[in-house]
Write a protein that binds this DNA or RNA. Structure first.
Length: 165
DNA sequence: GCCAACGTTGGC
DNA sequence: GCCAACGTTGGC
């Protein structure tokens, strides 16, 4: 958006939530790449549309899980494009306001990068001083696509790559 | 299963 | 434009 030609956007980091019973890191490992459909929140949509770039790295977070936490890493593999599940009447995320002519909801493709040998659980994240400011630790912070600090991203990754906590 | 914290909707 | 009611998210 308005960048000088030939200048790549600065790489950013994100956290994306998925209920593992719905779609887990193992599913993404099997599929390799998958459209991240079903986002029905304007703030999350705007992040995908305006701020994400191909190649950005993503903490894959298992929500509504026991325990919840970061299960691995993925990367953004496409620009935002219309989420066609919004105009599929049979889809659980159907929204009659969205049409092929006038799509309301967008998605990006997400590609598998790695699964952590050690899931970095939410309690562990909360215990870690250096991660105190992460959005995901805030009570009631429900945004399903959220920005992550580079330093926080690297810290989580190093925790996840450790076999034992 | 409970419920707090949000976001959205709709009456006025 | 206010705000109560309702639906959803997601930790616990």
């Amino acid at each position: 958006m308005g960048e000088p030609l030939g200048m790549a956007a600065k790489k950013r980091y994100w956290l994306m939530k998925s209920e593992p019973s719905d779609y887990s890191i193992d599913d993404l490992e099997r599929d390799g790449k998958e459209p991240w459909d079903g986002i029905r929140n304007y703030q999350a949509r705007n992040i995908m549309r305006d701020e994400m770039s191909i190649g950005d790295e993503v903490l894959f977070y298992h929500s509504n899980a026991d325990p919840p936490g970061v299960a691995g890493i993925a990367k953004v593999a496409s620009k935002a494009y219309p989420d066609h599940t919004a105009w599929d009447k049979k889809n659980k995320h159907f929204d009659k306001r969205s049409t092929p002519e006038n799509p309301v909801w967008l998605m990006v493709d997400v590609e598998f990068v790695e699964k952590f040998p050690h899931l970095v659980s939410l309690p562990e994240i909360k215990e870690e001083e250096a991660l105190a400011e992460m959005m995901v630790t805030k009570r009631g912070m429900r945004l399903s696509v959220q920005p992550v600090d580079g330093a926080h991203f690297r810290k989580i990754r190093s925790m996840g790559r450790r076999k034992k906590k």
